[in-house]
Nucleic acid binder design. Structure first.
Length: 183
DNA sequence: GCAGTGATCATA
DNA sequence: ATGATCACTGCC
């Protein structure tokens, strides 16, 4: 099913099987895709330019390293649903679940559109607890679209993830991916 | 460089 | 019930 938007090429809503791959693969593939939210009549769209992969329970930076808890339960659910959690008393973090059912892994969406930082992004797009464990489909109010952008290898910069100094050997793994600005 | 902010989880 | 922690941000 295609969704035609004025002034753009045909856009495709990312299907669940897009996310049924390792988190690091999904993370790279999400660069250049569009995050779209709808609240009532208001639609907000942003092109994703920064992500981080949390690749499984053995990843010492992944919330699921301690097993399943009420907070991280969404990550154990099916690929293609949101994992949204509250942190530092103020901010909501947005992740998309990847890989097989019961295998906890996800991609954190850190940057999109003009917003720098995951906390500012979620505030701008009205993202909160209500989306946790919801599928990324229009009916949920938040979804992802492919609008034809293809990131070339040289446009993707990989580096260590932010804010996970506690993660031992996993601290420095290059699981953060940024789409370089067009020059 | 570091304070603010409060849910979450382990410990008891 | 209590205390440490935290995938952040904004101001010094």
């Amino acid at each position: 099913m295609k969704n035609h938007l004025p002034g753009t090429a045909a856009a495709q809503i990312l299907p669940a099987d897009f996310f049924q791959r390792p988190a690091a693969v999904v993370a790279r593939q999400l660069l250049g895709k569009w995050l779209v939210s709808r609240v009532g009549e208001v639609i907000i769209e942003a092109q994703i330019n920064e992500v981080e992969a949390y690749v499984g329970p053995h990843d010492l930076a992944c919330h699921a390293r301690v097993g399943k808890t009420p907070r991280n339960a969404a990550m154990f659910g099916p690929a293609g649903q949101w994992y949204v959690y509250f942190i530092y008393g103020m901010y909501w973090m947005l992740n998309i679940v990847t890989g097989p059912l019961d295998y906890p892994a996800a991609v954190l969406i850190r940057g999109a559109g003009g917003w720098n930082g995951p906390g500012k992004l979620t505030r701008a797009m009205n993202i909160d607890r209500r989306l946790d464990s919801q599928p990324a489909v229009p009916g949920a109010g938040l979804w992802l679209e492919d609008r034809g952008h293809r990131a070339r290898r040289g446009q993707i910069v990989a580096g260590p993830r932010v804010g996970i100094d506690y993660a031992g050997l996993w601290k420095d793994k290059p699981l953060r991916f940024v789409l370089r600005e067009r020059s």
